[in-house]
C-alpha cells in the first residue's frame, strides 16, 4: 500500500497549478523514494518531471512501486476542496482502482475525505540523461515569469542566447521586435534568490515556443528562483526547486528551421 502525509497541503495545489495547463492526465509513480510524475504534453514537445521526495513528507509508506494514473482536471477539482493550510494524506492500495485524499484542517476541527477513480494510462516514458549543461542560468523566478509574459506580447518564439556577459531574450512579431538582456549580478547586495548567475562553458543560443515557457512559469509560486539549462541543439530544462522536497522540471524541444 501507499500512504503519504503532507503537512503543507497548499504545496500540492501549487504543484497541480504548475502542470494543469500542460497535461490532462498522468501516471504518478509511488515508490519508496518518493512520489514522481513524468508526462508529455499532447504534441510531445515538452515534458514535465516532478519529484516529491519521501523525506519531505511527515509520514511516508510505500511497500512497492505503484503507478497511480490520474485525470489531472479531476485531481485539481478534488484538491481545490482542501484548505491551503490543510494537512493532506494520500492513500491507495497496491493495485489501486481509486485513491483516497484526506484533508485535515490545521486546528483539527474539520476532516474530509475524497475518493477518486484511477485510470490506466499508457504513456511513453523517456529516459532523460543526466547531462552537463553548456549554460546554466539561475535567476529570480518572478523575473523570468515577467520576461516570458512580456516577450509573448510581442512574438511567439523567443531566442535565448547565453554568454558570460548575460542572457539575451529576443523575439519578433508583426508589430516589431523586443530584446531583454539580464546580466549576472553576484557581487551586489541582493539576497541569493534575487541574484542572476550565469555559468557557461561556451555561448549557447536557441529558439523556444513562448506558449510553453509561459505555461512553465505557472510553477513560479513553488520557488523564488528558476534555473535554465541549455546544451546546443538539445531541449532546454527549466527547473523550479521545491524546498526540502524535490523539484518541478520542464523540458522543451528547441525550434528548428529548415
Amino acid at each position: 500500500m501507499f500512504e503519504a502525509r503532507l503537512l503543507q497541503g497548499g504545496l500540492l495545489k501549487k504543484v497541480l497549478d504548475s502542470i494543469k495547463d500542460i497535461i490532462t492526465e498522468g501516471n504518478f509513480d509511488c515508490s519508496p523514494n518518493g512520489l514522481s510524475l513524468q508526462a508529455m504534453d499532447s504534441s510531445h514537445v515538452s515534458l514535465i518531471d516532478i519529484l516529491l521526495e519521501s523525506e519531505g513528507f511527515e509520514h511516508y509508506r510505500c511497500d512497492r512501486n505503484i503507478p497511480m494514473g490520474l485525470n489531472i482536471t479531476n485531481l485539481v477539482k478534488m484538491i481545490k476542496c482542501a484548505g491551503s493550510e490543510d494537512i493532506v494524506t494520500i492513500k491507495c492500495e497496491d493495485k489501486p482502482d481509486n485513491v483516497t485524499f484526506l484533508f485535515e484542517s490545521k486546528d483539527n476541527d474539520k476532516i474530509s475525505d475524497f475518493e477518486m477513480k484511477t485510470m490506466t494510462i499508457d504513456d511513453e516514458h523517456l529516459l532523460v540523461p543526466d547531462q552537463t549543461y553548456t549554460a546554466v542560468v539561475k535567476m529570480p523566478s518572478a523575473e523570468f515569469q515577467r520576461l516570458c509574459r512580456d516577450m509573448a506580447a510581442i512574438g511567439d518564439t523567443v531566442n535565448i542566447s547565453v554568454t558570460k556577459e548575460g542572457v539575451r531574450f529576443s523575439t519578433t512579431g508583426d508589430m516589431g521586435t523586443a530584446n531583454i538582456t539580464v546580466r549576472p549580478n553576484p557581487s551586489g547586495d541582493q539576497k541569493e534568490e534575487e541574484r542572476t548567475e550565469v555559468q557557461i562553458t561556451e555561448p549557447v543560443s536557441a529558439g523556444f515556443a513562448l506558449r510553453y515557457l509561459n505555461s512553465f512559469t505557472k510553477a513560479t509560486p513553488l520557488s523564488p528562483t528558476v534555473t535554465l539549462g541549455m546544451v546546443p541543439n538539445l531541449p532546454i530544462v527549466v527547473e523550479y526547486k521545491i524546498a526540502d522536497m524535490g523539484h518541478v522540471r520542464y523540458y522543451l524541444a528547441p525550434k528548428i528551421e529548415d
Binding site: H44, T157, Y251, A253, P254, I256
Partner: peptide, 14 residues
C-alpha cells in the same frame, strides 16, 4: 518552415 521535433528524438525511451 519552423517547427519542433518530438522529445523522443532527443531522449531515449525507457
Amino acid at each position: 518552415v519552423v517547427g519542433q521535433m518530438p522529445l523522443s528524438s532527443f531522449f531515449g525511451g525507457a
